[in-house]
Amino acid sequence: MPVGRVSDQLRYLGLVPRYNSLLSRQLDVQTAIASGQRYQRADEDPLSVALAQRFSEDTSRLDQNIKNIQEAQAFGRVTESAVGNVVEVMQRALEIAVSGGNGAKSSSDRANLAAEVDQLLRGVLDQGSTAWHGRYIFSGTETTTPSFAAVVNGSGQITGVTYNGNAGILSTEYTPQETISYNLLGSNESGGSLGIFRDTGAGIDVFQTLITLRDNLLAAPTSMSGTLAKISDDIQHLTGAQAKLGGMQNRLSFSALLHEDQKLALTETTSQLIDTDIAAAVTELAALRVSYEAALNVGARINEVSLLTYLR
């Protein structure tokens, strides 16, 4: 813009806004370096900030989903362990049934085997009421109540087992907007598709199988073929549940890995959007400092010459 005349106010004070502008920009870059964030407010780049906020929210949710998965996996591992223990018990029961069915066994031998079966029964009862972090894992959503309770006769012998849980499903979000149920019911007599120890649909009752085996051993020698078949069915049922648990664990592990990859991608993208590029910022700061020094230098030189200098 051709001005023509340059007044003294313009000459001396006109440069001040330029000094301020350069100082202000230096301050912005210094803040960006110190905070590690390119933007301090949304107005500096509304679109980038909005995207970064969304990515940050997504990252936070994935983090939470990973925690949920870890919790569900831990719960599942405890369940797997309990079911595995019961499988081992039932395999021993199978051996005892085969052995006890042998007509050569004396009544004393059979009584000893019955006593071992009784211990196995009590062990299975303990496994049925496994608790993790104070939660009874087979009780459905009645997690504060032991899943099973023994019914005993006057001599303390277990004659039956009652289920104290319900058909409740424990589920959690393992990926945004998707939930997974991670518990197995001890019994589905109150509802549900699968009961581990007692499944009314499949005709499975691990406790009753062991009670029958024990009682058969104590009774007169009789054929064990029906009991053997029951034990085999129970083992097959339990190993089927193990397979289901394994599948769930794999699914959760795969999701956790996917979430970690997604988190990494989101973090990188967020960083590119709003984090300070230190090298670029330091270079910019150096350039601004040079410009500032040059502006001050030029200002001083312009202002040092005047007609007054040459008048006596």
Partner: peptide, 19 residues
């Protein structure tokens, strides 16, 4: 924005440990 996210995360944790 962040506090809302944490609010929901709190309930997420509650889904795995309601007791």
């Amino acid at each position: 924005n962040k506090d809302l996210s944490n609010f929901f995360n709190g309930f997420q944790t509650l889904t795995t440990s309601p007791e």
